[in-house]
């Protein structure tokens, strides 16, 4: 490591009184006072949320309205504060999404526990959970802040899908069913 020699020459009389420093400080604060304010007047003004912002984790549907979560519980497993709790369930054969076989019976995220780390989003193999732009969470009780499946889907809405993995699977099945053996 290079040695940096710091100038330690003795202070002159004027410097010893500290007045230049005091006056310099006063000038800095005065300048600051005249500068425009940086405060964001929160309820009226809202910050612009960047695309990669990690807000409240939400569940999303694909453009066809299918709930994307298949309750693989990887997010529950990876969640560092154990905020997620999933009750898995199967999809009834009469359901139009029967080919997906599995979906959460209930999906709870405890917003009081969530640390917004985004690991659930990262780990999700179905791209079903996203930390979107919601940053203001409030409630009157602890129970209220445990978000259940309906609330999570309401918050999440619909996001574009790049794969349509399950739709393509259904198509293949239908094609086989129509074409005989394969």
């Amino acid at each position: 490591m290079a040695v940096k020699v710091v100038d330690r020459s003795p202070l002159n009389f004027w410097e010893k009184t500290y007045m230049p420093q005091v006056l310099g400080g006063l000038k800095i604060t005065l300048d600051n006072m005249l500068r425009p304010k940086v405060t964001l007047q929160y309820p009226e003004e809202r910050p612009t949320i960047p695309d990669n912002y990690r807000g409240v984790p939400t569940l999303v549907r694909d453009p066809n309205g299918r709930e994307k979560c298949v309750s693989c519980q990887l997010c529950e497993f990876v969640c560092p504060p154990k905020a997620i709790r999933i009750t898995p369930g199967d999809i009834d054969d009469s359901d139009e999404n029967a080919h997906v076989e599995k979906r959460p019976k209930d999906f709870e995220i405890n917003m009081l526990r969530c640390i917004y780390c985004g690991m659930c989003q990262e780990v999700c193999p179905e791209e079903a959970i996203f930390l979107q732009d919601i940053y203001s969470v409030s409630g009157y009780s602890r129970e209220e802040l445990v978000y259940h499946k309906a609330k999570l889907y309401e918050l999440g809405g619909t996001l574009p899908d790049q794969h349509y993995k399950w739709d393509r699977k259904k198509e293949a099945e239908e094609k086989v069913a129509a074409g005989g053996h394969h």
């Binding site: 693989c72 519980q73 990887l74 497993f77 076989e101």
Partner: peptide
């Protein structure tokens, strides 16, 4: 046991 719980839990 089908769809009841993931084995890693």
């Amino acid at each position: 046991f089908r769809f009841k719980m993931r084995v890693w839990f």
